[in-house]
Amino acid sequence: MVNFGSLREAIKRIDIPTLIIVFFLIGLFILAAATKVSVTTLLSDSIVRIGMNGVLVLAMLPTIRAGIGPNFGLPVGIIGGLLGGLIVMQYQVAGPIGFWIAVGISIVINFVLGWIYAWLLDKVRGQEMMVETYVGYSIVAFMSIMWLVLPFTNPEMIWAIGGKGLRYTLTLQNYFDKALNNFLRFQIGKNFSFPTGLVVFFAGSCYLVWLFFKTRPGLAIDLTGQNELYAISSGVNPKKARRNAVILSTVIAGVGILVYAQSYGFLQLYQAPLFMTFPAVASILIGGASIRRATITNVVLGTILFQTLLTVSLPVLSQVTRGDITEVLRLIVSNGMILYALTRTPKEAS
């Protein structure tokens, strides 16, 4: 049953940039079909990238819904996730089980980190986005020092020569590399393989978060974000609701980076966490969210659009020009999207 009226409504509500990206994407696929690039490979790659980035995008949802905007301090949670992965490596827990242990550890760490982070953000109500960004930068720089001095000893993790400090990228080959991707993976034809575990995990995460927002604590976050005074008059403690949202976002970010790492096959330390934030923010915005409202649909749609765009544009555009143009494209698209979201006059203002 398709309700055409509501379909038209839905189309009307789609943002112009989202539409542009959709058309651009369609154009790329047509171009791909015209050139020798294999569309099935592109699709297969896209699905992997959607799955590996999706959870990080999901981390944006709670803070937006709590009314404090996208979580520009994503690195805080990522650090917790990395620590989980590092501990698993240090104790040489091999195989997929390591992934789940890492997730468990990261959740514990991020609960604490998130709590502190939330406390700070509450002190700076109204300036969250800026403070988040610079707390993110600061913690990354601080942890860069920590990566050098923390007592990790597994030779696969530390610099081969000199033996002090962790490497820039740590291969997960003997650990939880592709722990999710290879779970129930199946192949269709020569070029298309479906990473079942990864997709199921992303879908499951979305479903859990969706369920959470139907519970009372979840509703409290929603009410706080939409109208703090309404929330107060409904007996909600907005401070607590915002704190929950920040902790939730931080925890999801930690899980998200582990999902990303197992698919990528490496843990990336030092500056790397910084480069996760803006694409994640941009994704949810491309999916139609604003800095004050977001839904699971925005998360899924945005991740699909943005990641497919990146996957498809690389091989297709490299037929026309140098491949590294996609990197520039990513910069322009993601920051352009955030800029658009920040400067548009809110629809709500009537």
């Binding site: 700070l120 002190k123 700076v124 109500r125 109204g126 300036q127 969250e128 800026m130 403070v131 610079y134 707390v135 930068y137 600061s138 990354v140 720089a141 601080f142 860069s144 020092i145």
Partner: peptide
């Protein structure tokens, strides 16, 4: 580098506070 970021974070936090 940490100091550079932390100083900005601190100033912004003070401003927000």
């Amino acid at each position: 580098e940490f100091i550079a970021y932390a100083v900005i974070a601190f100033a912004l936090a003070m401003h927000g506070w």
